[in-house]
Design a protein around this nucleic acid. Sequence first.
RNA 1: GUGGAUGUAGCUCAAUGGCAGAGCACCUGAUUGUGGUUCAGGCGGUUGAGGGUUCGAGCCCCUUCAUCCACCCCA
Length: 442
Amino acid sequence: MSKFIAPRAPKGFRDFLPETMLRRNYVLDCIRDVFHLFGFEPIDTPILELHETLFGKYGEEAEQLIFTAQHGRSRREPLAMRYDLTVPLARVVGQYESQLNLPFKRYHIAPVFRGERPQRGRYREFWQCDADTVGVASISADAEIVIMMHEILKRLGFPQFLIKINHRKLLVAIGEFSGVPQEQLPDLYRSVDKFDKIGADGVKGELIERGIDGEAVSRMMDLIQSKAPGDNSLDFIAETIGSEDKGLDELRQLADLLTDAAVESEHYDFDFTMVRGLGYYTGPIFETVISEPNLGSISGGGRYDNLIGMFRRQSLPTTGASFGLERIIDLMDELKLYPPQLGGTLVQALVTVFNEETRSDSARIGVQLREAGINTEVYLGRRKLGRQLAHADKKGIPIVAIAGPDEIEAGVVKLRRLADGSEMTVEPHALAAAVSDMLTDR
RNA sequence: GUGGAUGUAGCUCAAUGGCAGAGCACCUGAUUGUGGUUCAGGCGGUUGAGGGUUCGAGCCCCUUCAUCCACCCCA
């Protein structure tokens, strides 16, 4: 006798039923369309990587969250589940360099795995949608990424979002100008990154607690908090530091390129308190937040010119961004941003089956509708008509085709639109067109 | 990894230490050619699991598991 097993998915892993998958696919299609429009092409890589490929890239703390994997009998190749899509990209570039045309613009939409404690907007398996440009040192590549982020969020229908932009080199310059010693810079960034959560005083306190000179902290806080519309905050920093900085210069170019591309100024902002945790960034960095409701960042990215060098004799300048699918979904659920025609089913028509004698007539109607590209379900059970209509209604199928003895006798099909109860009787040659009409005309 | 809250029907939740309930969902019928409304009836429980206290535990105590929240970190 088999034992009963309480069904459940592992902690932080989730199942998706059809209704949810329809929404996920809608968002994925939207993101993919924009990637295509900007000329990015798809790649995929295995879920498992060699242990040595992943470790040593993210920093000690992050690497405690990497799932490792082993095959029962073979322990020759220690394996690990991918933690993001960026390191696999670096590996692929190192491995297939000769087959890639530089600049290489690739996108990658796939699940990644992190052994964190799950919470809303935070799971152990989640999908990232990455787009990166390999082999371009110019800031134009970074600008393209930001323009694309803007386009995606517009298309998804977010009424308000903010792409925060900063620059690693500028952060270093600000730190040095303020007199924070080089070796304390990581501590500095870690605290500054919490600015949104704990506020200016919180950051200040934390920094002084970490033993950074109080005066240096004050100087730096004044600098990074300088907020002014558009590039004016860049001017303020330039004046204060007194010399043009490489990072600052690049951000100015970036701002010009965004303006040229008609990126709306309300949707991006230079924010010198935004840091990003991952260690491999070297240039401009981006992060998108939606403040209401706040689920953390929904996309992030930046320039990482040295990472590929870990898989290749010489590195290649690279920049890109990543969208977190589940956070976008969670936000869209809450803000109800899905188009109304995205119902609970993709079935557009249900063909009822009056009795077993008429089943073949119903089947022919189904064939006809499918040939016309209409997603059609021919009822498979043997229940009375009322039950079949109830099934369509509950599932959200908009059109029901009825072919009982009367219709078959007359050589027609009766169509009923459930939303308003309207009915029409059509001859076979007009069937598909009539269904299409009923689907579109509301 | 640290701290907090919560686990009762498929779902959302009630129930002074004293008969385990409601709404929704589901099934049947009113209605053998028409759904979403209405009405009548029905199905549904090892109260997360294990132990303890008690005449008696969903309720109190201990253990454990799970979920959610806040940190940490991040998408």
